[in-house]
Simulated scan of single mutants.
Amino acid sequence: MAAEAELTPTGYIQHHLKNLTFQVQEGSFWTLHVDTLVTALLMGLLMVFAFWMATRRPTAGVPGKWQAFVEICLEFVDQQAKDTYHGSSKLVTPIAITLFFWILMMNLLKMIPADFIALPLEALGVHYWKPVPTADVNATLGMSISVFFLMLFFALRAKGLGGFTKEFLTAPFGKWMLPFNLILNIVEWLSKPISLAMRLFGNMFGGEIVFLLIWVLGGASIIGALAGGLFGLGWMLFHLLVIPLQAFIFMMLSIVYLSLSEDAH
């Protein structure tokens, strides 16, 4: 860790909130957040591996503990998707499963203290590594933009290009209010992915800052360490609810938006 980051609490927090970046060309607009990409990919692979371990030797009788747990989780998400989505697409449940468990895996990294990841990487010469991908707005926007394109796909499949265009220009005020309809529908469609991304990012980023503040408090003195440990435990227990809840909200809103995109106005 850089020396200036160790001297002040502000420097320490800023250090842990900085991404490891890579620019294809110096001064280019396109900057890759390497830590977000790598960590998100690893969590996705870990999710797939966990599901594969549960299904590689399934038993029809009494399932093993891991198989039973995975089946309960998948049935829960499948039921939520069926209750929320009123169309006939078979893609909705796989989309819901992917979103919920992938976001959940990324959110769970918040339970690992930042230094437990940063210090070993520092020894390897990696000076910056933001461990929680969902605390990076680029990751949450990437997922919400994917949901946005899925909304377009579902709408076009259900209504056709002509029906979608007609509805976009004439709903909800009729064809004589076309400019107002256009503005309203553009705002409505763009606000959905933006709100999805910002809700998840805001909760995860804010929680990360609070964890770092508590960690800084704990290093001030013995009393600070005791207070930091107490507050840290309380905040961690609170996040045991926040972490799955944010994944669930992102998944449910995505399904609602997919369902609404097929409905006629």
Rank of each mutant, 00 (worst) to 15 (best):
G202M: 06
W176L: 10
W189C: 08
R199I: 07
L150Q: 01
A171G: 01
K166F: 04
H127S: 12
D115V: 06
G232W: 00
A139S: 10
V132N: 04
A171I: 02
P113A: 12
P133N: 09
L190Y: 07
G224S: 06
W189H: 12
A227W: 04
V126Q: 06
L196P: 03
E208K: 01
I194W: 10
A225M: 10
L156V: 10
K192W: 03
G174W: 02
T140Q: 05
N185A: 04
T170D: 13
S191Y: 03
M143H: 01
S191E: 09
L152E: 14
N203R: 07
G125E: 13
W176N: 15
F148M: 15
L213M: 06
L124Q: 08
L190N: 10
I223E: 15
P172A: 08
I209P: 00
R199N: 09
A135F: 02
E208P: 00
A139M: 11
N138A: 14
A225K: 13
A220V: 14
P193M: 08
S144P: 14
V216L: 08
A171E: 11
G174R: 13
P172F: 03
I145K: 13
I183R: 08
I186T: 13
P179W: 00
A225L: 12
I117P: 06
I194M: 10
M143I: 08
G207N: 12
L178D: 04
L226M: 12
D115L: 05
M204L: 02
E208C: 00
I222V: 15
I112A: 01
A220T: 09
N203A: 09
A171Y: 03
F154T: 00
W176V: 07
L230A: 15
K130V: 06
F173C: 11
G229V: 05
E188P: 07
